[in-house]
Design a protein around this nucleic acid. Sequence first.
DNA 1: AACATATTTGCGTATTTATGCAGTATTAAA
DNA 2: TTTAATACTGCATAAATACGCAAATATGTT
Lengths: 248, 248
Amino acid sequence: MLKKERHAYIMREIDIHNKVLSSDLSIQLTVSEDTIRRDLQELDDNGILTKVHGGALSKSFHFTLQNNTVYSQPEKKIIAQKARELIKDGMLVLLSGGTTIIELIKSLPHELNATFITVSIPTALELLDHPNGEVIFIGNKLLKSAQMSVGAEVVQRLSEIKCDLCFLGTNSIDVENGITDLDLEVIEVKRAMIRSAKKTVSLSISKKLNTVQRMVVCKIGEVDVLITELDPGDALLAPYHSKISTII
Amino acid sequence: MLKKERHAYIMREIDIHNKVLSSDLSIQLTVSEDTIRRDLQELDDNGILTKVHGGALSKSFHFTLQNNTVYSQPEKKIIAQKARELIKDGMLVLLSGGTTIIELIKSLPHELNATFITVSIPTALELLDHPNGEVIFIGNKLLKSAQMSVGAEVVQRLSEIKCDLCFLGTNSIDVENGITDLDLEVIEVKRAMIRSAKKTVSLSISKKLNTVQRMVVCKIGEVDVLITELDPGDALLAPYHSKISTII
DNA sequence: AACATATTTGCGTATTTATGCAGTATTAAA
DNA sequence: TTTAATACTGCATAAATACGCAAATATGTT
């Protein structure tokens, strides 16, 4: 890879994330960190980014550095680690929205080559950053609160595909009611996602276990895999074992 | 093999891969690397590629490096101010991608109530922040480099709608060739966008005036409104007045 | 065709550039 | 304060480049 190509790659990363880490770039571009540091130095000299300890920042958004206030991030990172093991090369994977899903995408190995389908704009944006694999967005009217496509058209198009895995970032799950959610339009889409997938994986931080919302997405038995940050043997998960075949 | 033939071959490679390596070309064309270097030097002097250590890159690489820096921000804000005047309540508005379009969205009045359609993920994300109006995303396979939907499905669905306005963030525009761009898949979509709109508005910072890329999106006559940060009477815009009805 | 002239090309050599590595210094975070 | 991560320095090496020159090729003129 030519130096200028690396520079272009780095600037694209900066445009998307407003920051880059030398260590990440070193792996993604398969060059030494020294080279990355020299690249960043050069781009800094050209005035198009700001080099800092550990990487570089966008000139335009200095202040958004510590904006990464993802709720319960450590737990979500653990869940992401577990979930990524399920995705193999060549799979067709359906992803919902939510910060847990974002963490999952961030943790995907760069060499993974799968096809991802989503209805969530932030999820799509994160997927676009993954160097391999294809990304398909099912569009239609966007729901502002959930930042995702909703409506009959989406449900229809989801019914036309058959995926290997469906990952749902889950707001509320309990043994009695299954997965529940608030918004009817969101629920319609999530149901369609579940129907079009061979296996449904629910990603839930333990705080959300045993909570209920107003409307049912699916019964607990329709969930094939439940992933939390807890040890599968944890007492909190005990009631779920009889209903869900795989708990990680 | 004649020099001109080599040049044609090199440019074709550049068109396809956006880069060439001197070492590769030397083998493919069975000439010495010196000759290749001299070829690349000549093509660089003609301004149709960018020679770098180890080979050459498409001119577009240079563009992407300068594109999203803070420098053009003021110009883009001015363009956004002018463009927003065109959007009225109740309109159906088609938006492309690009930072100029993002600026336009940011500058939209909160009380505006229009329906927006887009194929660009960052544009959609920005639109979702707007309190009023509806947002429709036309999805399909996403092109990573442009962060937008591409492919026949998108073109088909665009053909089914009729919008009031189409705003194009324009990379290159000149009187001879009209709006030009790099990527065939992007061009297909942009053409479809133009076809489905009653009026096409091109947003271009003046740096991009009189620049040409390899492939034509539309002739200059198909642009109904041209918006730059310049005064409409500016000398740079003089050649455009005879071809475009409205220049702001 | 024959010739003179200009251009193009390849090769050897000196120079420059790009990159990684090792050791040391510095910084940031626990 | 301690510790781990990151940065800097100098150096080694390989690759790429520039330069001069001579051979080969093309071009134009009579």
